[in-house]
Amino acid sequence: MQILHRQIFRELLKLFGLTVSCLLGLILIGRMLQLRSLFLSQDIGFFNILQLFFYLTPFFLLLITPIATMLSVFLTFLRMSTDNELTALKANGVSLYKMLPAPLAFCTLCTLFTLFISSWGLAWGMDMFKTKLYQFARTHSKFALQPGVFNKEFPGITFYAHQVDNEKGELKFAFVRDESIKGTSVVVVAPEAQIESTAATAEIRITFKNGNIFRKSGEELNILKFGTYAIRLDLGKLLMGFNFNEDKAKDMPLSRLSAIRSDHNEAPGRGDRFYRKVNTEYFKRITLPIGCLVLGMFAIPIASAFRGLKQQYGLLLSMGLFLVYYTMFSVGVSMGESGAIPPAYGLWAPNFVYIFVALIGMRYANKERMPTFVHWLMHLRFNKRASA
Rank of each mutant, 00 (worst) to 15 (best):
R285S: 06
F298Y: 03
S334Y: 07
F173S: 14
F329G: 02
S255P: 03
L109R: 05
K250R: 14
F136H: 01
Y160N: 01
R205N: 08
H162C: 01
A161P: 00
F214E: 04
M362L: 14
S180I: 10
R36A: 14
S258K: 12
N265S: 13
N366G: 05
S258Y: 11
S255K: 09
T114K: 03
M1V: 12
G336M: 12
S118W: 11
F322P: 01
G25K: 10
D263M: 04
I206H: 09
S185F: 03
N151Q: 00
A303T: 01
Y326A: 13
I157H: 05
I67K: 10
L359G: 12
V94T: 10
L52S: 00
A91K: 08
G314D: 09
Y313A: 15
S255N: 08
N351M: 04
K130R: 13
K98P: 05
S21V: 09
I29R: 10
V294L: 03
F298R: 04
L38R: 06
H375Q: 10
Y97F: 12
C107I: 02
P268R: 01
N366L: 03
V20Y: 10
I27H: 03
V353F: 07
K209R: 13
A91R: 02
Y325G: 04
L78E: 08
L295R: 09
F226C: 08
P101T: 11
F39V: 02
I204N: 01
G296A: 02
V374G: 04
Y313I: 14
K284T: 11
V188G: 00
A174V: 10
G148R: 01
V324G: 03
V20F: 08
L235K: 00
Q7L: 13
H162R: 11
R215D: 07
C22S: 13
F54Y: 09
L26M: 12
P155Y: 03
Q135K: 09
L239Q: 04
G236N: 02
E167I: 09
F159V: 04
K132V: 02
I300R: 03
G30T: 11
G269K: 01
L38P: 02
A365H: 09
Q7Y: 15
L38H: 05
E170Y: 14
S118D: 07
L4Q: 04
F53K: 07
Q34A: 14
F208N: 01
L239P: 05
M319T: 09
D83C: 03
R363A: 10
V176Q: 04
A174L: 07
M99A: 10
G361H: 02
F9Y: 14
L293P: 07
T198Y: 09
W348E: 03
